[in-house]
Simulated scan of single mutants.
Amino acid sequence: MSKRIVCLRHGQTLWNVEHRFQGHSDIPLDETGVAQAARAASLLASLRPTLIVSSDLQRANDTALALGRVVGLDVAVDKAFRERGGGQWEGLTRDEIAARWPEEYVAWEAPDGEPVGDVAARVAAAMRRWAAEVDDDGLLVVVSHGAALRLGICELLGLPEELWPALGGLGNCSWSVLQEGRKGWRLLEHNAGTLPEPISSDDRPETQV
Rank of each mutant, 00 (worst) to 15 (best):
L156H: 02
R59T: 05
V75D: 03
E133G: 09
E31K: 11
T93M: 04
G158Y: 00
L73H: 07
G169D: 05
A80S: 14
E155K: 08
Q12F: 05
R84W: 03
G138P: 09
H145E: 08
V141S: 01
L44M: 10
L157I: 06
V77P: 06
M127K: 00
V34E: 14
T207W: 15
A166G: 05
A45N: 01
L44H: 07
E96A: 12
E189S: 10
C173V: 07
P160G: 07
R186S: 14
M1I: 13
G146K: 08
V75S: 01
K79C: 05
E103Y: 06
D74Y: 13
Q58V: 15
D74S: 13
E18I: 07
L8T: 06
M1Y: 12
A76W: 06
S2I: 03
A40G: 04
R129Y: 11
V6H: 04
R122P: 03
R39A: 15
G184D: 11
W185E: 10
A132Y: 04
P111Y: 06
P111S: 11
R9C: 03
S25C: 13
W130Y: 10
L157T: 01
I52H: 09
L8D: 09
G23M: 06
P102F: 04
A147S: 14
G193H: 12
L47A: 14
R150Y: 02
P111F: 10
D118H: 12
L57F: 03
E133R: 15
F21I: 15
R84K: 06
R182I: 12
A99N: 09
I27Q: 08
A126V: 01
L43K: 13
L188P: 02
M127E: 01
C173G: 09
P160S: 08
A125L: 02
G23T: 06
S144A: 13
L195P: 04
D118F: 09
A35P: 09
E90Y: 10
K183M: 15
G146M: 00
V106L: 11
E206Y: 15
R122I: 01
L139M: 14
A64Y: 10
C173Y: 01
L73M: 06
Q22F: 08
W15N: 05
P102N: 06
V6W: 07
N16W: 05
G11H: 02
V77G: 05
D136Q: 11
N61S: 14
E103M: 06
R69F: 08
E114M: 07
A120V: 00
A45D: 01
V70I: 14
C154V: 00
A131C: 11
Q179P: 07
L47P: 00
N16K: 03
L14G: 12
A107D: 08
L65Q: 15
H145V: 04
P198A: 04
L163C: 14
E162L: 07
G91C: 07
P165D: 04
L57T: 03
T13H: 02
R182G: 15
D112P: 00
A124V: 03
W101S: 00
E90C: 08
S42C: 02
